[in-house]
Design a protein around this nucleic acid. Structure first.
Lengths: 373, 373
DNA sequence: TTGTACGCGTTATCAT
DNA sequence: ATGATAACGCGTACAA
């Protein structure tokens, strides 16, 4: 009964939209310039048919004029674009997505709104996606149980890919994502993932923690405490394990660690304070190695305002991320810089590719020595 | 030639999607639970026709079953939903948007990524929109010239509304937005706008600054300096002008002010330091009233680490926003709390309405006294 | 309450 | 290089 010509669409789409920047649509600015304050431009939408009629070509030729690498003569294209400019035509991406199975939408799944670093990631990703002609669907996840909702949203909007920006994605969430309908690609950003069906783009945190351990050891620190994020997630384990191994290799001793349930500055404050006034009261660490900057900032606050001690005088602190907050003189955090822009560029490259890319792309970061250690 | 039955669609849409939460789609969880790690669910997409066939009804009845207030018998709906559940059907919102002229997408236009408060706004808005069945299109604007690009993106995606979250939107940008095709509603969030074609949802900053002035004056401060954001934008003027008026009314004196070109912590640091070591060296203020928290944080850093003075001992600082950073013990900023959640709820209400809402909704905030003044 | 014709604006595919 | 046919998946209006 039901007819469906295009099943299992695995065609390669080589024709991408171009001319997607407003700079290429001078008629927009012209119209706006001529407007009065209380005046709205006639919202009567111009469609490809109108342009076709005006240019004396068919609707399909209009579409070709707006796509790269389309078989169309330069002369015809010029005429079509001129007609489009005069009428104020802009292609409708929603309709294009419906027809082509490529929505041009990328879902950014975010659960880590308490971490200021998230804002940096959102800025970089959305800007670079916009430059490349993609739209960003911001999909928040309140907590772990919010993941199915988020992925449902993404799949209902036919996104071309979903990017996991969170920190506590566990394997169950990734399985949910892969199971969601119409989510074609799943990319784990700024985290590693062991799942073979994902593509992860992240900073080389193994190398990073080796460098961090080297720095701390050579600076003479001997009583470290590792401050890790939520337990039970494979992503966390990597930095922690690398640290523990490296420290043992260098010092012969086993370093202790604590876990904080969320990457939340206030919570880190509380947990670090509890640790230093409780189990670690009599064996106070001389350096806190933190899994990321949010934990490190909380740790500094705990040391200074909870214990009345000094950083780095009494206890040093090292973070990871180099978020803007880390550079403020109040914290002046020694940390590890992730090359977010490079990683975002790599993400775009992965999105462009139709073939299976190599998984687990690692990018080197760099150590940022400031005043906290 | 061209036929268009539905011109100027001003119909009232009373039927909204329901059952949009994943909790209502138990088959998703079931399928996922049964999966192996390296297995992907058959992405063969189930459409309404399939469900119709399985339930023995027409395709249109399937659509009705998924909408509220649709004329359908409870029995039929139950049968349809059962069939949908078995097949794993989920409505396609992209196609629905194309057909109905309501995409269910809201564009969040953001230009203020240097301000940590933006993350709070994004979290609240995207969560509440998701709960109500809307999707959030995150549209970044690098600078003022990026506004046309951003609005083009929004209009090409047929958003139902565009929400301006930025801080330096001037009237030209708003005109651009209103001129953009297919952007039906324009809402200015957390800022006021004088433009009669917009709806602004904001905190009552006139009342807020009255309270702030009252506090500062009664605390005995007598030499204020107002630290404002970018000049030339009407949004900025309101807090500044209110402050200046109120201070004059109370003290009989005219208070001075400076401008910072962006709401950026580092830049505020530099500008405040320059002011205090330059023009204001010999008439040092005893209190800095800042237009928002980002400026206030920069001011505190400048006072403490640039001048070596103490806050609040030598100079007090008051902010506005109550962003999470303000509560950290390092800054402990006295500020004004904006009721973002209430404002987000009001936004949803405006989005729901088809009639013209009253413009300029104001919400009361509250003074948060901490240690910086 | 249910079914049908038509349209939404575009693209894939094929024929010319 | 261009035009034509047939989707894409669903909603609206109206008839039954």
């Amino acid at each position: 009964m039901r007819k469906r010509a295009r099943k299992n669409c695995t065609r390669v789409h080589k024709t991408n939209y171009w001319l997607l920047r407003a700079g290429f649509y001078p008629w927009l600015s012209a119209k706006i310039g001529a407007m009065n304050d209380d005046q709205t431009i006639d919202p009567g939408v111009v469609i490809a048919d109108d342009v076709a009629e005006a240019a004396g070509v068919s609707r399909w030729t209009v579409g070709r004029a707006f796509r790269k690498d389309a078989p169309i003569s330069a002369k015809t294209r010029k005429r079509v674009l001129a007609a489009a400019a005069q009428l104020g035509y802009v292609p409708d991406l929603a309709a294009a997505g419906l027809a082509s199975d490529r929505s041009g939408l990328i879902a950014l799944l975010v659960n880590d709104f308490a971490n200021p670093h998230t804002l940096v990631v959102l800025e970089r990703l959305s800007l670079i996606l916009q430059n490349e002609g993609w739209g960003s669907l911001l999909v928040p996840m309140r907590d772990e149980s919010g993941a199915p909702d988020a992925l449902l949203t993404a799949s209902q909007r036919r996104v071309d890919a979903a990017v996991l920006n969170g920190t506590w994605f566990d394997d169950q969430i990734i399985k949910t994502a892969l199971g969601a309908r119409r989510v074609k690609k799943l990319i784990v950003f700024a985290r590693t993932s062991e799942n073979p069906n994902t593509i992860s783009i992240s900073c080389d945190d193994v190398g990073a923690l080796r460098d961090i351990v080297a720095f701390a050891f050579e600076k003479g620190y001997r009583r470290p405490l590792f401050v890790a994020g939520p337990d039970s997630h494979s992503a966390t384990v990597r930095r922690k394990d690398t640290f523990l191994q490296e420290w043992h290799r260098r010092s012969g001793a086993h370093a202790p660690f604590i876990h904080v349930e969320q990457y939340n500055i206030g919570l880190a404050h509380a947990r670090v304070l509890a640790a230093l006034t409780g189990p670690y009261q009599d064996r106070r660490p001389d350096i806190l190695i933190c899994e990321n900057d949010a934990l490190a900032i909380g740790a500094i606050d705990a040391i200074r305002y909870g214990l009345g001690l000094s950083v780095p005088g009494d206890i040093g602190v090292i973070g990871y991320d180099d978020m803007p907050l880390a550079a403020l003189p109040c914290y002046n955090l020694t940390t590890w810089h992730q090359p977010i822009t490079d990683m975002a560029n790599a993400l775009v490259e992965v999105l462009r590719q139709t073939s299976e890319p190599s998984r687990d792309q690692l990018f080197p970061g760099r150590f940022i020595q400031r005043g906290s250690a």
